[in-house]
Design a protein around this nucleic acid. Structure first.
Length: 519
RNA sequence: GCCCCUGUAGCUCAAUUGGCAGAGCAACUGACUCUUAAUCAGUAGGUUGAAGGUUCAAGUCCUUCCGGGGGCACCA
């Protein structure tokens, strides 16, 4: 890196201090430090009156701020639970300890033994009796008041973001709480967590462009999975009646506020259920997660939590608005929503085409699409789908289950008994964002095989989700129970529950282009 | 892939019409035994993202490239 030369002057100063620490007989990189307590635990133990000696405590943390006042040094340190002020007094410390203190810099990790006591101004403090260096830091910390604001720096050096930007750590840890909650909800209902292959010979189960890789020994191309679906259904055939996987999938597509190339997906399958069972499950998963985030926020270091408190148990803040998730959530059919917002019946092909042209004029639908449509290259249901996306989805504030989709755009879904043109599928929308997608799973192997073939019509191979997977068809022939299946985009769920506008806010290390390539 | 915005010291930001690249924090030296973004005095710190061009003169204008952000497209 060309940066090295610039940073040298800072690193050199810290290297000298490291040598000083060694000279004084201490390890600049520290050793195991037992029996320290969390700062959050220790703070309340401080006597309320200034100048009164409290309990002897041992803590560890990173040096965040430093102030000098004559032969006194005030250091603020922070651990995973909070901050506390340390006071070093020249009069109370040995020469060796005072010199060791002088070799500290902002950003160093230290261990402290001392007594809790309030300063004259009433600040909770630890009056230090012994300092232990736990790790020397060699980089210059960001500006103490403003921190780092440059988004690129924050994303490329997420550890700095976590240390120095207020609330970032809490928000990302909230993600872990949500994941725990989702797993608990599923476990309570008897779902078994499994792991299936990430490397697929055929990337099926969704319509998305996969990442391509290669196995050397077998000399064969492999795809990173774009969905979990097909393997999980094979496990249902195998007798695992309630099964889920909560893990990473990969899609080789654009990056924006709601898309990262690798993201976390939940897929759950329930034998002998249907898409209605999955609505109940979705409500449970989301409501439990809302409760979990509330409980987590109560114990958090920073009070500027994402959500304003509300009297409604299952409600969350989203921007300036409040969304009520109290179940049951409304269920509206695709057809009625279509009629409501498009102003015509989706079965009236001519009217739908007219609406599509109208939407093209306002730019909500691409001109190219209209050209394809007029040339007869587009299935009528695709036109319906296009119009639906253009004029319905953004109006779905939600939460709302959109149910009963046109069968032709759902090749893995069971058709309604009374109407084979309609598939038993729902998508959950909240503020125009697609949060969940579920089906009554198709378990007729011959129909499935046929749909895999016919879906290809009018679509490029890579745009189709209907990729023939013969192992999967073979499994269906063994016999898969009628079942409901559910998919939830976990990153989007976390965005929703943490009031985050960008998916990057809820992923520790979102994908970025490498910086400063020499080429 | 397209359009708009953006890149100045480790960090946060200035720099008039094209006219000597500056400040705060951090660092370094010093003063101060109760500070709270401590304060005060001093020192040092720059290939203005990169390359080219216009000009007596470029952080500023032009071209290309690189990174980032936002929007569009793609994403059933």
């Amino acid at each position: 890196m060309t940066q090295n030369k610039k940073t040298d002057r800072f690193e050199a100063a810290r290297l000298q201090k490291k040598d000083k620490i060694v000279e004084l007989g201490h390890d600049p990189f520290g050793q195991r430090f037992d029996d320290h307590r969390s700062i959050a635990d220790v703070r309340p133990l401080c006597p309320t009156e200034s100048g009164v000696d409290g309990e002897a405590v041992r803590v560890a943390g990173r040096i965040m701020l430093r102030r000098k006042a004559g032969k006194l040094r005030f250091l603020d340190i922070e651990d995973a639970t909070g901050k506390i002020q340390l006071l070093f007094s020249r009069g109370d410390l040995s020469e060796e300890q005072w010199e060791l203190m002088g070799a500290l810099d902002l950003g160093d990790l230290i261990g402290i033994d001392g007594r809790l006591r309030r300063t004259e101004s009433g600040e909770v403090s630890i009056f230090v009796s012994e300092l232990t260096v736990l790790c020397k830091s060699f980089t210059q910390p960001p500006e103490k008041h403003h921190g780092v604001t440059d988004v690129e720096t924050l994303l490329r050096h997420r550890e700095l973001d976590l240390i120095y930007t207020e609330g970032v750590r809490d928000k990302l840890l909230l993600r872990s709480k949500i994941l725990d909650s989702v797993r608990n909800t599923l476990a309570e209902r008897g779902f078994v967590a499994v792991e299936t292959p990430v490397l697929h010979a055929v990337a099926g189960g969704a319509a998305a462009r996969p990442f391509l890789t290669h196995h050397n020994a077998l000399d064969m191309p492999l795809y990173m999975r774009i969905a979990l679906e097909l393997h999980l259904k094979r496990l249902m055939v195998g007798g695992i009646e309630r099964v889920y996987e909560l893990s990473r999938v990969f899609r080789n597509e654009g990056i924006d506020a709601t898309h990262n190339p690798e993201f976390t997906m939940l897929e759950a399958y329930q034998a002998y259920g249907d898409y209605r069972s999955m609505m109940d499950l979705t409500e449970a998963v989301v409501c439990d997660a809302i409760e979990a985030t509330r409980n987590a926020e109560c114990g958090m270091r920073n009070k500027d939590v994402p959500h304003s408190p509300s009297s409604i148990l299952h409600s969350i803040s989203w921007g300036e608005t409040e969304i009520d998730f109290t179940p049951p959530w409304p269920r509206k059919t695709y057809a009625e929503l279509f009629a409501e917002h498009a102003g015509c019946e989706m079965t009236d092909a001519d009217a739908v085409q007219a609406k599509a042209r109208q939407l093209a004029e306002t730019g909500d639908i691409k001109a190219e699409f209209i050209a394809d449509m007029d040339a007869g290259h587009v299935h009528p249901d695709i036109v319906v789908s296009e119009v639906f996306e253009a004029c319905v989805e953004d109006n779905l504030v939600g939460p709302v289950f959109v149910i009963d989709y046109p069968a032709s755009i759902c090749p893995l879904t069971k058709r309604k008994q009374e109407n084979p043109d309609i598939a038993e599928r729902f998508e959950l929308f909240v503020h125009g964002m697609e949060l969940a997608n579920a089906y009554t799973e198709l378990n007729d192997p011959h129909l499935q095989e046929e749909l895999f073939r016919t879906q290809l019509e009018g679509q490029s191979e890579e745009d189709s989700m209907a990729k023939m997977d013969t192992d999967f068809i073979q499994a269906l022939k063994v016999g898969m129970p009628p079942a409901g299946g559910l998919g939830i985009g976990i990153d989007r769920l976390v965005m929703l529950l943490t009031n985050s506008r960008s998916i990057r806010d809820v992923i520790f290390f979102p994908l970025l282009r490498p910086e400063g390539s020499e080429a």
